[in-house]
Design a protein around this nucleic acid. Structure first.
Length: 574
RNA sequence: UGCCCGAUGGUGUAAUGGCAACACACUUGGUUUUGGUCCAAGCAUUCUAGGUUCGAGUCCUAGUCGGGCAACCA
């Protein structure tokens, strides 16, 4: 075949490494990854990318992916987080089967390995204080100086380390250090701490241990024990790779390969655990699963689908370049899916009453047929009741509309979706000048939304019959921050200064078409012309439904308005 | 002023020494009973300077800029 138009599927740099390894028969071509969260917080969208990468690679190569909790610091870790992390990984659509592990499972093995290194003369007990050790480590430009305890005998080290384990010392009295190179240009190789004394109960091992291994002495060996072939982590561990390899080599155990990639950064989003915690604790959001949070549980409650997050993650790609991904890509991934799958409904968020003056007072029930999803005819149709009094969106009427406004205004005719053409001939204002009611006439000949005489209207509005409406609360969300980079603050400012005061708008007077009274929890609906919505899993009840706006529909009218506003402002400034 | 890593449209990625491609965003136009969807068009001196080569986004050297590293955190 001379068909050269077939494009090779592009592979990212990690797949390239794996392909090479498999071609060379390394590990018999086996691919085994792991997702290793520390159970000290909730998973966020950045973790989602790592989960998709690790589980995705395993799937792709017919391998396995473990879930392993990196629980080496009892001071910070809690069972509450373990449970939420498992729930989130499962929700994203991944399965670790019987491979649920904890670094704490390996504490005894790790201890034995530490003893081995002491015996080999590769580790020593240092009895200096934290401050002294820090000082003697030197700086990035100045080499460190050896601790006075660096040359202790093997016997003395063994004795001291055992007594550390036996709980004879208080926190901070001694540490176990690897004996590597105090002059190394790589700071992590300057005799890193392997074990510290922490007289604290562990969420799994209880009071069994009072010394705990550091990340560097636990992670690589945990990978090794589990037979991990490709240990994927983020860029900030690049400097740790020589140490990762050093421990494995000195111990003479199975050698996984650490590979670093760039973590996900999203516009209008913070993902630092510390900052997320601060948002929750200071009440800037209502908990970890607040739909404005970039946590996985936040996205879930907001109405995001696992598949949209997986697709986003895949399309964002894997590189070593530390960039910022546009939040619009995640929104696009969701819209693309929901456009195909979400059933359409009509709902009015900011109601404006409309009286159809020529509609009969005593009309029989007037049921109109509405398509559930024009993108998927199999979803069928439903009936929507029409009546003399209806609600439309306040935004859909202007007393003095500009030329390109296609909606309702005095003397204008529009279509009510699936219903009738109506013409506005009067409106009522309250004492404050707000428009509170419209008087319109309808054309009975246009029932269903088409004019037999062929006349056209520019605008089509959604509507809800007043007497049939289901009342609901609707929560409309916007970016949590006003700046693309929330950390971009003027001198002396704080990142929280960039919090968007309008990130949550609660609409308490929404009117929904009757069928939404039976809305299913966990199902996404498109409210026509508005966006995608779902029932709130926490606050919604049968008597008082609460909907979250997951994401808006694209709105080229709103964009046009914004443009014009900006133009006006520009002229004023100029 | 040490070491490590990186640099391709506004953004994220592709091109594996041979015509810089895709997606998102943005702009313009078309279709439309959702100002949605869909369709079409527009949008780049591949950070700089040298070098290797018939040929460099890709390889080499130097520079510039950006990120990471001096927790008994992970």
């Amino acid at each position: 075949m001379d068909d050269t138009s077939d494009k090779k599927p592009s592979v990212n740099f990690i797949e390239e490494i794996i392909n090479t390894d498999r071609a060379n028969g390394k590990h018999d071509g086996r691919v085994h990854t792991r997702f290793p969260p520390e159970p000290n917080g909730y998973l966020h969208i950045g973790h989602a990318k790592s989960i998709c990468l690790n589980f995705g690679l395993a799937e792709q190569y017919g391998g396995k992916c473990n879930l392993r909790f990196d629980d080496t610091n009892p001071a910070k870790e809690e069972t509450e987080y373990v449970d939420s992390i498992m729930e989130d990984v499962r929700w994203l659509g991944f399965d670790w089967e019987d491979r649920l592990f904890y670094a704490s499972d390996y504490f005894q093995q790790l201890y034995d390995w530490a003893v081995q290194l002491i015996e080999q003369g590769d580790a020593y007990v240092d009895s200096c204080s934290l401050e002294e050790i820090r000082e003697m480590r030197g700086t990035v430009t100045k080499p460190g100086t050896p601790s006075p305890h660096r040359e202790r005998s093997v016997a003395e080290n063994l004795d001291l380390f055992e007594r550390m384990k036996n709980g004879e010392f208080k926190d901070g009295a001694h540490v176990l250090r690897a004996k590597i190179d105090l002059a190394s240009p790589n700071m992590t190789m300057r005799d890193p701490v392997m074990y510290r004394i922490l007289n604290a109960p562990h969420h799994r091992t209880g009071d069994t241990w009072c010394i705990y291994p550091m990340y560097d002495f636990a992670h690589g060996q945990s990978d090794s024990i589990e037979g991990i072939t490709h240990s994927i982590c983020t860029l900030e561990f690049e400097n740790h790779r020589p140490l990762y390899d050093w421990f494995i080599q000195k111990l003479g155990i199975f050698a996984p390969q650490q590979i670093e990639f760039a973590r996900l950064n999203l516009t209008y989003t913070v993902t630092s655990k510390r900052k997320l915690l601060e948002l929750v604790q200071e009440g800037h959001v209502h908990g970890w699963d607040d739909p404005r949070m970039p946590t996985i549980c936040g996205f879930r409650r907001r109405g995001y689908t696992p598949s949209s997050i997986r697709k986003f993650s895949k399309e964002t790609g894997v590189t070593k370049f530390n960039g910022v991904t546009d939040l619009a890509r995640l929104e696009n991934s969701l819209r693309e899916e929901l456009n195909k799958t979400a059933e359409r409904r009509m709902a009015v968020l900011n109601p404006l009453k409309v009286v159809i003056t020529n509609y009969p007072e005593d009309a029989d029930e007037d049921l109109l047929e509405a398509v559930n999803n024009p993108e998927n005819p199999d979803d069928g149709v439903r009936q929507v009741p029409f009546a003399k009094e209806i609600y439309i969106e306040q935004d859909d009427f202007m007393e003095d509309p500009p030329k390109k406004f296609f909606r309702l205004g005095p003397g204008r005719e529009v279509r009510l979706r699936y219903a009738y053409f109506i013409t506005c001939h009067d409106f009522v204002k309250d004492d404050d000048g707000n428009i509170v009611e419209l008087h319109c006439t309808y054309d009975p000949a246009t029932r269903g939304g088409d004019a037999p005489d062929g006349r056209k209207v520019k605008g089509t509005l959604h509507w809800v019959s007043a007497e049939h409406a289901v009342e609901a609360e609707v929560r409309v969300y916007d970016h949590l921050f006003t700046e693309e980079d929330p950390n971009d603050v003027p001198e002396g400012g704080d990142w929280k200064d960039n919090l968007n005061p309008e990130s949550l708008t609660v609409l308490t007077d929404a009117k929904l078409e009757p069928s939404l009274g039976d809305a299913e929890m966990g199902k996404n609906y498109q409210f026509e012309r508005l966006g995608y919505f779902c029932l709130d899993s926490k606050d919604s009840t049968a008597e008082a439904p609460v909907f979250n706006r997951t994401v808006s529909l694209k709105d080229s009218w709103a964009r046009k308005q914004k443009q014009q506003q900006n133009k006006k402002q520009g002229k004023k400034k100029g």
